[in-house]
């Protein structure tokens, strides 16, 4: 039961954040990890696992707390990199994220390569899992996800205007720089909360908003709440499969989300080719 609730929370968090990122960056490849949060969290977690410190500081909370902290640090670094004369250029944001991911990714790989014992643990953490997580994890995540989702939904109308271009949005009275800053930060915060608890679950945050866009259209006032709902259900569903398909062996959750999600998305994309090209631009 705690696992079911947690899976819904993690799925919601990643999907809402993904929708927010895609709205601001207007890039179909944007996902919650665009700003390097996942790699940031991974560095923290891998470091603890490498030195066997995973229970050293706060018991079972050691990895989440440290991973969350390193994720936020990497977010600040990316924001610093991406700021040119007080403004966020979208291309710069994406590139800064890519640079940060490459850099931190190499550190994680290095740490994994250096250890013989911890490599398995690190790889498994990277692939994501919801196993053995009690109620307390959900309790900690819930306020983040709830508050973050509500804030992002309030920005839904502004994100619709962003779809017409930043200049159009500015002329309609949207405070463009502030909106970018708030949406990216909030989306990254809830992503960091999810990642620090569950490890890196790929594909959900990228695909859920796209999938819904194919079905309900480009309106963020609908997309954001629906992303929360369907993202939650999707991870719940895949986590159940991950647990039961090869029982008693458990498949890493990140593997299942992508393995099932990718073909389904390819099918939808093929079916709605026209709509997809329209809304992704």
């Amino acid at each position: 039961m705690p696992r079911i609730v947690l899976s819904i929370l993690v799925g919601s968090a990643l999907s809402v954040a993904g929708a927010g990122f895609q709205g601001i960056l207007r890039n179909p490849l944007a996902d919650p990890y665009t700003l390097g949060v996942a790699s940031g969290a991974a560095v923290g977690a891998a470091f603890l696992l490498l030195f066997g410190l995973q229970y050293a500081l706060f018991g079972q909370w050691t990895i989440p707390v440290v991973a969350f902290t390193t994720a936020i640090l990497s977010l600040f670094a990316v924001i610093r990199l991406a700021r040119v004369q007080g403004k966020f250029q979208i291309q710069t944001v994406i590139l800064a994220g890519v640079v940060m991911q490459a850099f931190l990714g190499s550190i994680v790989s290095f740490m994994a390569a250096m250890s013989r014992d911890a490599v398995n643990e690190i790889v498994f953490w990277l692939m994501g899992s919801l196993a053995m997580k009690g109620w307390s994890y959900s309790a900690v995540m819930f306020p983040y996800v709830l508050a973050g989702t509500v804030i992002l939904i309030f920005y839904g109308r502004a994100l619709n205007l962003f779809a017409l271009g930043e200049r159009q949005a500015a002329h309609l009275g949207v405070r463009v720089e502030r909106t970018k800053y708030i949406v990216l930060s909030v989306a990254t915060l809830i992503t960091a909360a999810a990642v620090s608890v569950s490890g890196i679950i790929g594909f959900v945050g990228l695909i859920t908003p796209h999938l819904l866009r194919l079905i309900v259209g480009p309106d963020y006032r609908l997309l954001l709440p629906l992303s929360a709902l369907f993202g939650g259900l999707y991870v719940l569903w895949t986590d159940t499969l991950a647990r039961t398909a090869l029982s008693p062996t458990e498949i890493p959750l990140g593997v299942v989300t992508a393995f099932l999600g990718a073909p389904f998305f390819a099918y939808l994309l093929h079916k709605h080719k026209r709509t997809a090209t329209g809304s992704a631009s």
Binding site: Q168, H171, G278, S281
Partner: peptide, 12 residues
């Protein structure tokens, strides 16, 4: 303000 590039081809 009406700008020259008009509106992008989005799904709205």
């Amino acid at each position: 303000v009406l700008v020259q590039d008009g509106l992008p081809a989005v799904g709205f």
